[in-house]
């Protein structure tokens, strides 16, 4: 057998092996039948090309059959019609679902704890007025927000008692936003 023939045979076998792999969902005798027919076709065409004195063009013949996976999909399609998704697919769906579920809970925890912290700051202002506030530092280039052990020295306090309504409104806003995001996420769960 010449080098070119060896190469052609190898291409054909590789293609048929791929096809066999993708046909795995058929019964073994069905998949074998498909392979046998296509193999017979391929070698028939090669024989005819040789008989006509043409150079064998395996790549061109295989192109007519198309990608092995897509070819196999057409043979397998009837099994999937009206049938529940195969096991592999169900696993993919539940992975996707659990990602969405963890995203949902992470979003809920993040949003509501943010809102709670803001409410907590607003409430704490009444108990510890000196320790709660928004301080501006470096001429407004940096700020300190919230709860501090001792008021930062030399920084002006910005909001004073306004921190109570501002933090409460922010908490309300964050709550509403979180609920809307959660509603959207829920639709995609």
């Amino acid at each position: 057998m010449s080098q070119a023939e060896l190469h052609n045979n190898e291409m054909i076998h590789r293609y048929l092996n791929d096809l066999r792999r993708y046909l795995a969902r058929l019964a073994p005798h069905e998949s074998q039948e498909v392979i046998r027919e296509i193999e017979s076709h391929l070698f028939d065409v090669l024989d005819q090309q040789a008989a006509n004195g043409q150079a064998a063009d395996v790549a061109e013949i295989l192109r007519g059959f198309g990608d092995a996976r897509q070819l196999a999909a057409q043979y397998v399609a009837h099994i999937e019609e009206g049938a529940p998704p195969p096991r592999g697919f169900r696993a993919i769906q539940s992975v996707k679902k659990s990602v969405t579920a963890s995203l949902y809970f992470a979003m809920a925890v993040f949003g509501f704890s943010m809102a709670l912290s803001l409410l907590f700051v607003a409430g704490a202002k009444f108990l510890l007025p000196e320790a709660v506030g928004v301080w501006s530092a470096a001429n407004g280039n940096s700020i300190v927000v919230g709860f501090v052990a001792a008021p930062p020295a030399g920084m002006p306090e910005v909001l004073g008692w306004w921190i109570v309504p501002v933090a409460t409104l922010l908490a309300l806003g964050v709550t509403l936003l979180t609920r809307r995001v959660l509603r959207v996420l829920k639709q995609h769960m």
Binding site: H41, G64, G66, Y75, H78
Partner: peptide, 15 residues
């Protein structure tokens, strides 16, 4: 038509 269309279609006609 192409080989890739004909053979799966024959398979379906046979089924």
């Amino acid at each position: 038509i192409t080989e890739g269309t004909l053979y799966p279609l024959l398979d379906r006609l046979k089924r």
